[in-house]
Structures are given as C-alpha cells and as structure tokens.
C-alpha cells in the first residue's frame, strides 16, 4: 500500500554543509495495518512520514502508493493522489477563524465535493470522532484532544485509504493520548484505513501498532512485528525503548548478593502465557522460593505481553527443573548474570 524505496533526503543548511535526514530508508506498509515508526527527536522520522504524501521530496528514491510512484506524478496528479491520503499533525493545524463545521467543510468544498455531500460527511465523521455537539464552536474553545478529533474528522472526511500521523498524540496528556489512540484503532478496524504513524513514545507503538520500525540518525535500525521487538530487541536503542515500558533497574550489588542463593531470571511472557500464574506454579511444584524483583504486564494491540525479573531461591537441581518447566510452557527465560 505504501512503499518507501531507498529514500535519501539531504538538506543543505549552509554553503557546504549537508545534513542527511534520511539515509537509504526502505519501508513497506501493508493494506489495513497500523505501522509505527519510533525514534528520538532528530532521528528523521518526521521527514520520513512526510515522504509518504510528498510534503517532503526525496533527494533520491521512490515513494510508491498503490503502485504509483508519487515522485513521477505531475502537480495536478499529485494533488488528486493526496486527497486519498489523510494526515494529522502534532499541532492539529486547524484554522482558528473557522468553526469546527467549516474546518471540515471548506477543504471538502475546495476539493470539489457537493454541498449536499459535505453536510452528510461532516455529520458522519463528527459522529465517528464523538464531537457532533461542537459543530459551531471555534477551535480556541476546544481542548487539545478535541482539536485533534476535529483534525481527524477533517482527514477522514476526504475518505482516504491511508492516514499519516505526525506525532499526533505528542502534545496531549496521557489520558487524552489513550483516547486518541483508541479512536485511531477504531478508524483502522471499522473503516479499514491503513495508518502510518511516527512517535517518540513506546506507549503509542505498544497500544495500536502491528509493526514497528526503529529509527536513528536517518536510518531504520530495526523493524518487525511489535511483539517480536518486545520479545527480542536487538539494537541498543530498541532495547532502550522497550525498557522505557519495562523499567528493571536492579542495583548490581543486590544482584551479586542474591545470585548466591539461586539464579535471577528475566522472564518474558507472550499471549496466553502472560495470564497464567507461572511463578506460583513452579514454587508449588519444585522445592524453591520465588521473589519478584520487578515486572510489568502490558496489553499490545492483539495480545498480552509481560516481563518479570524474579529471583529463584533453591539448589541448582531444583532451579534447573523449574527453568525447564517454564521454558516448556512457553515462557522465554534468560538468566541475569550481571546488573543491567
């Protein structure tokens, strides 16, 4: 559906200074999925998402949407194509001088939608975002979350197949963020809209994305299914993002101390396994005691995912049996040997 192929983007900031915002980046988003790009600021993710509707023109590479390379289109063709690609922004980008109704209606009118159809669509999409009672209000009277809902309704009213989200929740508080994420998920499921989003919050990826790419210094350093990235992050930056959800700082001295009585284990649970009381089961079955040092269970888009760090107290024979038991029951076990 969206294919970015070998995209490089250079910015000339001075006479002889060139900044490579994107360095040979390739990415494919399939129809109907929510694809997240995560990275720290300056990683190039904003430039990347703006490639998908050619707000940013690549220095080299192709941007293929539904089999058509946007780079080769004429201005008029590009305008037509853009009407099929909605976009929402961190700063909402509504017109201050227009009411909620006008903010949605005027772009429709400017793209040639009939008056009667405009009325129907504004109502329909304000209903979907839950703001039907705010039609005549000006944006300054709305909260951030409400403004983003209007922006979403505006994007949806063009009935696009694709929605691009440029840090759409970054200016919102945690509760509002969750509401907007739930709305994006609903749009994806009920209207079948493919979403490409960028964010710097792992939380956003975790809640709604199917697949994720991690960016650093203009490159994608790791990409794959969200659950795979959570289970087995390879790159340092990815590990840091994952550990932002699962803080597991056990002081080194404590680790050294505890290891004398038995191993410290990092346990990863994916799916149903996360909902079973594995630790108490092994405490009952074997001659050991378990003690949880840190841990968290989170809800990914389609499944539950948990990480626990636990100390297993007991002799080597019994703890080995316990580890075998966990492994055969689908828990991923890794022994912690030093702190970190």
């Amino acid at each position: 559906m969206i294919e970015l192929r070998n995209i490089t983007k250079e910015f000339h900031t001075g006479k002889n200074t060139v900044i490579k915002a994107l360095d040979d980046v390739s990415l494919t988003v399939s129809k109907g999925e929510i694809y997240g790009v995560i990275g720290y600021s300056g990683a190039g993710k904003s430039t990347l998402v703006r490639m998908a509707n050619l707000l940013e023109v690549p220095t080299s590479g192709s941007v293929i949407i539904d089999g058509e390379d946007l780079v080769t289109l004429s201005k008029e063709q590009l305008r037509q194509k853009r009407q099929n690609i909605g976009m929402i922004f961190q700063g909402f980008n509504l017109l201050k001088t227009l009411t909620v109704y006008q903010n949605i209606a005027i772009p429709l009118k400017l793209t040639g939608v009939s008056e009667a159809e405009i009325k129907v669509r504004v109502k329909k999409y304000l209903d979907i975002v839950g703001l039907s009672d705010k039609t005549d209000v000006y944006p300054n009277q709305l909260s951030g979350g409400q403004k983003q809902r209007v922006a979403i309704a505006r994007a949806l009213s063009h009935e696009p197949d694709i929605l691009l989200s440029d840090e759409a929740t970054s200016a919102l508080d945690p509760d509002t963020t969750d509401q907007i994420l739930a709305l994006l998920l609903k749009i994806n499921r009920e209207l079948g809209i493919t979403i490409l989003l960028i964010t710097h919050e792992m939380h956003v990826i975790q809640q709604i994305c199917d697949r994720v790419a991690v960016m650093e210094n203009g490159k994608i350093i790791e990409q794959g299914l969200v659950v795979d990235l959570y289970t087995d992050p390879k790159h340092e930056t990815t590990k840091r993002f994952v550990s932002s959800i699962f803080p597991s700082q056990t002081p080194g001295a404590i680790i050294e101390d505890l290891r004398k009585d038995g191993p410290i284990l990092d346990l990863t649970f994916v799916g149903e396994v996360a909902e079973k009381p594995s630790l108490s089961t092994i405490s009952n079955l074997f001659h050991i005691e378990t003690n949880i040092l840190s841990g968290n269970i989170v809800e990914l888009k389609d499944q539950t995912f948990g990480k626990l760090r636990a100390h297993v107290k007991g002799n080597t024979e019994e703890t080995t049996k316990a580890i075998d038991y966990l492994t055969t029951h689908g828990v991923i076990v890794r022994e912690v040997r030093s702190h970190g």
């Binding site: 590009l78 305008r79 853009r82 009407q83 980008n93 772009p107 400017l110 063009h158």
Partner: peptide, 23 residues
C-alpha cells in the same frame, strides 16, 4: 503547519492563499 495541512489535502495553491493565508 496549517498551510501544510491544506497542501496535504491536495488543495490548489490559489485556494490556499485565499482560504488559509489571507483568511
């Protein structure tokens, strides 16, 4: 950003000047 949002919606430059910038 507002101008950009309108560009992203595929709206003609002249319309953007009148309906976004001047408005």
């Amino acid at each position: 950003g507002v101008i950009e949002a309108y560009q992203a919606m595929g709206i003609k430059p002249l319309s953007i000047i009148w309906h976004v910038m001047i408005r």
